[in-house]
Amino acid sequence: MPQDARMAEDPTAFRLGAAHPGDRGVIVRVLAAPAGPSGALDPEELELRLLEFGFVEGARVEVLHEGFLGADPIAVKVDDMRVALRRSEAMNVILAPEAA
């Protein structure tokens, strides 16, 4: 997994795209990066779509379910809303464990 500045700063940070059901955290950063090798959108557009779905810094996220093939897509709870998305896009959402 490529490291970025933010994740280097906070060793406990993790990507939503690599999380498992039961994992939870607070969004510390939403990246404008292409979604894996096969993403069709330009990074800014993907960032905007994530933001419009409520994936924004400070939002609480919990992973609820994952698909049966390749554990993809995932169903997550963002604040009070349930959203389904693919792991490739979720890679752009960086979470940190919530401070107790």
Partner: peptide, 13 residues
Amino acid sequence: RGGSEPFMMQLPD
């Protein structure tokens, strides 16, 4: 040949 569009949708109550 371009990549795939993202799949993102709300799961309503």
